[in-house]
Nucleic acid binder design. Structure first.
Lengths: 229, 229
DNA sequence: ACAAAAGTGTTGAACGTACACCCATGC
DNA sequence: GCATGGGTGTACGTTCAACACTTTTGT
């Protein structure tokens, strides 16, 4: 089967920078390529956009097929389209970044025979194509956005302690935060629901659990409130 | 001449939301389409990406060809690619937004026979394709970004008064600002160079002229300073 | 002299930052 | 009883917001 056009058309792909958080820090999800070019090299999950599929739908489908991930936070990042970024033909890639609760997705079954694995973002192998640049752009975006939008919660379990929340911000922002000031700030925002529950199975005093209150957040945004950490 | 591929490829275009500022407010530059679909309707300037051309280069070329504009501030906005957004075939458009000193580009000669004109952003005709949505996205981006990055200067002449600067922010942010607080704030940033010049030909006391000090700004950014209006 | 816009300071409230100890729990 | 992290308040400096009059210049 062949497809013919009057004018040249580039190929269009989607690629996703997926971030997760664990005790060791921020991780990104990579897949190992099994075909040329860059066979054997690690790369961002992604693939070609189908003719009747929206861009976000394509990104979600590729994530599902290549990594098994579904229903995650996903936002468009940037579109990379310099000629020559793929040695085979002109390929324009619409890049996305995603945040996922890593604890829920510890073991990654690679459903289409490619291996998938989490790598610490500060110790990455060299990636295929220009995926290093895409990943760097995604990290910069995450860093820049996490203070102004409550997207960091996407990296945490639904119920979390204030210490976990602080560690998440410290990891993403790459700087330490003062415990008392941090608690004063986030509790003062009025978007955390204090639960009647504490951590389980810890070898010290158990911390109170909180939940992000999406409803309260949206109500406050509507009334002109600005989230800021 | 025909181009044949093993898999279907979408067409890829670039479209630009170009903003300018005058005494009446914020304007956007539109061109009138002369072919179907949407012949006669107003649309954002843009067109197909050539096979060996980068995306930004394509956007700059289309702006030059369709509106005569060159060397303007241009940033990638978002990529729109829902199936069906163009009735002819699958078209993915990488949208850009641009800022221009409107005074320098008052009369727009349409170089390839299409008419180009500035429209007030708060009184726009209905646009071709999904260009209304693109323009709305661009306005939201401009609104959101102007406070954190010194891009607003791109809308002003190189030498400007503090009142012009304040009007620009008031227009883009769609709210009034206090004159004394505004001056204290912007002068305190240390990125305005005070010139030994004043306005000419005004029927009242002439205001001092200032210039944006790009060098000082970059030095301060390097040292961890954060621009904010 | 008058019209028009330029230019200029103070005060109170809110917020950010620095900082250290006691408490509850599990072992 | 000890080790581990949980939880809490104050004081200071900085920044933001509200607010009105005098000065300069051109006509």
């Amino acid at each position: 089967m062949a497809f013919t056009y009057e004018h040249p058309h580039p190929a269009v792909t989607v690629d996703c920078a997926v971030f997760g958080l664990d005790e060791d820090g921020l991780k990104a999800l990579l897949i190992q390529r099994d075909v040329e070019p860059f066979a054997g090299r690690w790369a961002l999950p992604g693939g070609f956009v189908r003719p009747d599929e929206g861009l976000e739908a394509a990104a979600r489908r590729e994530l599902r097929e290549e990594t098994g991930l579904e229903r995650l936070f996903l936002e468009q990042l940037y579109t990379f389209g310099e000629p020559g970024r793929d040695p085979r033909e002109r390929v324009i890639t619409v890049a996305w970044y995603a945040l996922v609760r890593l604890a829920d997705h510890r073991v990654q079954a690679a459903t289409d025979a490619r291996q998938a694995a989490w790598f610490p973002v500060d110790d990455m192998p060299s990636l295929a194509f220009d995926h290093d640049a895409i990943l760097t752009t995604a990290l910069t975006r995450l860093h820049g956005k996490v203070r102004w939008q409550p997207i960091g919660f996407e990296l945490l379990p639904p119920k979390f302690t204030l210490t976990q929340l602080q560690r998440m911000y410290e990891t993403v922002l790459e700087r330490g935060l003062d415990k008392r000031n941090f608690r004063k700030k986030v509790l003062g925002l009025g978007i955390l629901e204090e639960l009647d529950e504490v951590e389980q199975d810890v070898a010290h005093r158990a911390a109170r659990l909180y939940r992000f209150d999406q409803k309260a957040y949206q109500r406050m945004v509507r009334d002109g409130f600005n989230f800021e950490i």
